[in-house]
Design a protein around this nucleic acid. Structure first.
Length: 260
DNA sequence: CGTCCTGTTATCGG
DNA sequence: GCCGATAACAGGAC
């Protein structure tokens, strides 16, 4: 589920429902999900309130009491608010109870994902090498980063969270399809126009994906993601969709539309 | 039963 | 050091 647009939609759910209300209980359903020791985690959060949120790539940082709570969702994470304790979602990992009597559950079907406390935001993103956010990055920054990644495959570079953060397997396929670039093209083989087009397409695609998530609509008609299957045909030219493995992830593409 | 999977990380070989 | 490939982490869906 969660790449940048999904995570941004989580953040926008959290803002109106969780900010400014005292946390009156913290329930740890799965200790392994916590990177911070359980007791310290609970003690730091209890009776505090979330003040603001920010997102960088696939990470949400919630500010409270001079610290941050970091949420990372792995492959199957979600957030859910509910009012009735009996409505506790399956696979809840951590639950916050607010004074207004609402609950916020951090959910993950699989055990990937994590929740932890961060003392210093700048230090943390440096240490964890979380690159500039894919929606925030300027063209100049993008060009610099692509220069640094010039020996990488286009697909790998787009998914590298230390280069730019937020794009995963699905949206990298989408960006490459709409940019008509074969996934295993080396970045060094792209001309300046293609780099600029990539930069524009990244923002355009992530923004439009976010809009459809927020409105609960299907993806726009020109999106490739619904065609990510070797049983499907290219929505543009009707060629059979191809698949290849790049660093053990499947990449889907159209061999006619995406030039090598 | 076997296969697949939107993420990240460690490790190995080139 | 950089890159790519792979395994590992888990467990539900099909």
């Amino acid at each position: 589920m969660p790449e940048l647009p999904e995570v941004e939609s989580f953040r926008r759910k959290i803002d109106p429902q969780a900010l400014g209300s005292p946390i009156i209980d913290v329930v740890i359903k799965e200790e392994n999900f916590l990177e911070t020791p359980k007791d310290e985690f609970k003690k730091s959060l209890l009776n505090k309130e979330f003040e603001s949120t920010r997102r960088r790539g696939k990470n949400i940082f919630i500010k409270f009491n001079m610290k941050y709570l970091l949420l990372h969702f792995g492959m199957s994470g979600d957030v859910q608010f509910y009012k009735n304790k009996r409505k506790e979602p399956k696979y809840s990992k951590v639950i916050f109870k607010f004074k207004q009597n609402t609950f916020l559950s951090i959910i993950s079907i699989r055990k990937f994902g994590k929740v932890q406390l961060i003392e210093d935001y700048e230090k943390f993103i440096k240490k964890m090498k979380i690159g500039p956010d894919a929606l925030e990055i300027t063209l100049d920054e993008f060009k610099t980063i692509m220069e640094q990644k010039k020996r990488s495959f286009a697909k790998t570079a787009l998914m590298d969270q230390s280069a730019l953060s937020g794009i995963g397997n699905l949206y990298s396929d989408e960006v490459l399809f709409q940019s008509r670039i074969f996934p295993k093209t080396k970045i060094s083989a792209l001309n300046e126009g293609q780099i600029e087009e990539l930069h524009i397409n990244i923002k355009d695609i992530l923004t439009r994906a976010l809009t459809s998530i927020l409105t609960h609509d299907d993806y726009p008609n020109d999106f490739f993601i619904p065609y990510r299957s070797i049983d499907k045909k290219c929505p543009v030219c009707k060629s059979k969709i191809q698949r290849l493995k790049i660093s053990s992830r499947h990449s889907f593409y159209c061999s006619t539309c995406q030039s090598k």
